[in-house]
């Protein structure tokens, strides 16, 4: 069977490519064309990226806590952490 490709579509210029699903194709060129017929039948995109699924390395869900939890208490990274007088309207 043809390899599996992950498909990413840019909905319109100015936006990021977003993962939409996968499909099978013999090669990358065919994957792009198949993606056109499978995932953009209703004007869903202006650009397509494909990558063979086996080339994607994903973080391990088991590592989710050590990976992502430590960011939780660093609220000082967000603008709302800082109290400014009302007179300062835009900052």
């Amino acid at each position: 069977m043809w390899p599996l490709f992950e498909i990413f579509i840019r909905a319109k210029n100015g936006l990021d490519h977003k993962h939409v699903g996968s499909l099978h194709a013999a090669d990358a060129q065919m994957a792009i064309e198949n993606a056109r017929d499978v995932y953009t039948r209703r004007l869903e995109g202006v650009s397509i990226w494909v990558v063979e699924s086996k080339h994607i390395t994903a973080s391990d869900p088991k590592d989710a806590d050590p990976f992502f939890k430590p960011a939780e208490d660093k609220i000082y990274r967000h603008p709302t952490f800082y109290d400014l007088p009302d007179e300062v309207k835009h900052m």
Binding site: W2, L23, H24, A25, E33, N34, D37, V38, R41
Partner: peptide, 11 residues
């Protein structure tokens, strides 16, 4: 011959 090409020909 394969679902993806079914869709291509229909298009």
């Amino acid at each position: 011959p394969v679902l993806e090409q079914d869709m291509a020909m229909t298009n």
